[in-house]
Amino acid sequence: MRAAVITFPGSNCDRDMAVAIEQVSGKAPIRVWHGDADLPDGLDFIALPGGFSYGDYLRSGAMAANSPIMRSVVAAAGRGVPVLGVCNGFQVLTEAGLLPGALMRNAGQTFVCRTVALSVENGESLFTRGYGAGASIRIPVAHHDGNFFADEATLDRLEGEGRVAFRYGEAVNGSQRDIAGVLNEAGNVLGMMPHPERAIEDAQGGSDGRAMFESIFANLAVA
């Protein structure tokens, strides 16, 4: 299993993501810098971490989406490589056009930093198989721009195609239809505002994020 974690200037959850991947898979991921043009060969999984890439200049994720490495990430996603974007990583994925919609300023205007309830809406994706549909989990969020917006037609399509992976179980940031995470059409790209890498073991206050990484890596072992 070869995983990579991309670091942009201003990423601050890249180490947490790398530690989570190593703890669950037993193998440390390759750390890739945003200015690299190419990804390492033979990757099985790519993670875009949280943080404030490029200081959130222009729009959250907008600058990172146009960095050299993202062209390679878009190409890898097109080949079916699983890509997970958490928080700022989710913002980067929408800005790069790999996922629909946009993440706007939280409706309450404040930075939200707490553990929230999520319901697993699609329990069959390669990221969520370990939970099963309808599972209720608790994962930390920490963001200012997590208010998911898409037009009604796009939202209907996402719901109809089972591409809403997670929904908030409580009011968090004003997201349309309480959407916390969405999948791309092929199901190999997931963007989510909550941080599963911050919920890997009980010492972190909960371990509900662990099953996501187990799902991803179990799938790779079979493949």
């Binding site: 222009l58 729009r59 907008a62 146009n66 929408t94 800005e95 629909p100 919609g101 946009a102 706007m104 917006f149 898409a150």
Partner: peptide, 9 residues
């Protein structure tokens, strides 16, 4: 289209 505006919003 590519950078200055996000035409989704």
């Amino acid at each position: 289209e590519k950078l200055l505006a996000n035409t989704v919003i």
